[in-house]
Amino acid sequence: MNVTGSLETFGDIVVFVLSILGRLANLRVFRHFGEVLRQAGILILSSTLVIWGLVFIIGLQCGIEGAYFNRSVGAPAYAGVFAAWCDLRELVPLCFGYMMAAKVGTGIVAELGSMRISDEIDALEVMGISGVTFLCATRLLAALIVLPFVYLCAIGAGFFASYLAVVQQIGDVSSGGFFLIFWEFQNPPDLLYSLIKAMAMAIIIVLVGCYYGYNASGGPVGVGTATAKSMVFNIVAVHIVGMLGTQLFWGTNPRAPIGG
């Protein structure tokens, strides 16, 4: 692996990201607020169901795993502990990141890359419109507007799935018993931290997708290569953010009613 090349790429990404954030900071992106709304609409219509679907499945897994594990140690009433932590802290953010990378990130790379190789971005620039602002900053702002709600709903889907698995499917614990423990082991700050993790992932994914798409070259093969690279980068980034988030938010304080 070419370390120097990787560092150069990382540096280029940082510079590019800063230019996009600059467009948000100086509010120029609001000149194209119609495009922001269009991108928000695309995100809602094309990505929410698939994200919620994946999170629902992972919620089922957390519920099933928690229920059988707690049955095996003789504490089936505590299945909600596993479900709460598994859902909120780890797997829902990760699955959200996976689907964002796979659906939204690659979609951005492919779209912008195709625009690049077909001269559409150049055409935009020649019209006196900044491509970075119109194509990248608008997508980032749309993500910032839409994705918190998408994520919060995804958490709800995960919780609902865990409830179905633990209470309705396996049935070792009553509904009231499950929720007593389930809510005992999480609180509003946990929800905020989880949201921060997920949004950090989402922002990185959108920005990386914009970078690889906007700077694609080499024809269709180049777009394919850029898409693959962005996917690799994003999957790694999702796990790094997940790890750092867990360490930062829950590493020193498990925030659980254990041991007084």
Partner: peptide, 8 residues
């Protein structure tokens, strides 16, 4: 542009 570069 060569191929028009229309927005798809």
């Amino acid at each position: 542009f060569q191929d028009g570069a229309l927005f798809g």
